[in-house]
C-alpha cells in the first residue's frame, strides 16, 4: 500500500491505496467522482482525461501514486457556483454529444486545447482531438462546440 495525498477539484484528499491503483480508479472508486469514465482501458479513447497540474492526461495511464502531491481537476470541478463552464455550455448549445460517454474526456481535453492554443481553426481542433474517441462518431458538433467556446473566450 502507498499513502497518497493530492488536491482534487480544490479539495485536499488523502488515502492508502494499493500500489497498482490507477489514477482513474482512485478518482472513481475512492473519491466516488464517476464523471471520469473508463472507455477502452488501452490508453486510446480519452474518456478518462483529467487535468493534473494543469495538463490534460489520460488518468487510466497514470498511477494514483504518480499523482501524489499533484493538483487534479476532473469534470466535476469545472462548473462554478452552479454555472456551467463555457466549454460545457458550448457542448450543450451545439449538441456536442450523442450518448455522452466520451463527453467528460472531450470537455477536459477541449479546455486544455483552448488554454494551450491561441488560434483554433477546425483542422487544429481535429488534430488536437486525436487522443479522444467518440464512438457515436459525433465529431462534427464536438468540433463546432470547441470552436464556439474558443471564439467566445477570445
Amino acid at each position: 500500500m502507498t499513502a497518497i495525498s493530492m488536491t482534487v477539484n480544490g479539495k485536499a484528499v488523502s488515502a492508502d491505496v494499493e500500489d497498482r491503483t490507477l489514477l482513474v480508479h482512485f478518482i472513481r472508486d475512492h473519491l466516488h467522482l464517476t464523471g471520469t469514465h473508463v472507455g477502452c482501458d488501452t490508453s486510446q479513447c480519452g474518456a478518462c482525461v483529467v487535468h493534473v497540474d494543469g495538463r490534460a492526461i489520460k488518468s487510466c495511464t497514470m498511477l494514483a501514486a504518480q499523482a501524489d502531491g499533484a493538483t487534479v481537476m476532473t469534470i466535476e470541478g469545472l462548473a462554478k457556483d452552479g454555472k456551467l463552464h463555457p466549454v460545457q455550455e458550448a457542448f450543450r448549445e451545439h449538441h456536442g454529444l450523442q450518448c455522452g460517454f466520451c463527453t467528460p474526456g472531450m470537455i477536459m481535453t477541449a479546455v486544455d486545447i483552448i488554454r494551450r492554443k491561441p488560434a483554433l481553426d477546425e483542422k487544429t481542433i481535429r488534430e488536437e482531438l486525436e487522443g479522444n474517441i467518440c464512438r457515436c462518431t459525433g465529431y462534427h458538433n464536438i468540433v463546432k462546440a470547441i470552436a464556439a467556446a474558443a471564439g467566445a473566450k477570445a
Binding site: 490508453s43 480519452g46 490534460a56 489520460k58 495511464t61 486545447i113 494551450r116 488536437e128 486525436e130 487522443g131
Partner: peptide, 9 residues
C-alpha cells in the same frame, strides 16, 4: 508523437 495527452506524460 502520439496525441496531446500522451505528450503531456
Amino acid at each position: 508523437i502520439g496525441d496531446p495527452l500522451v505528450r503531456h506524460m
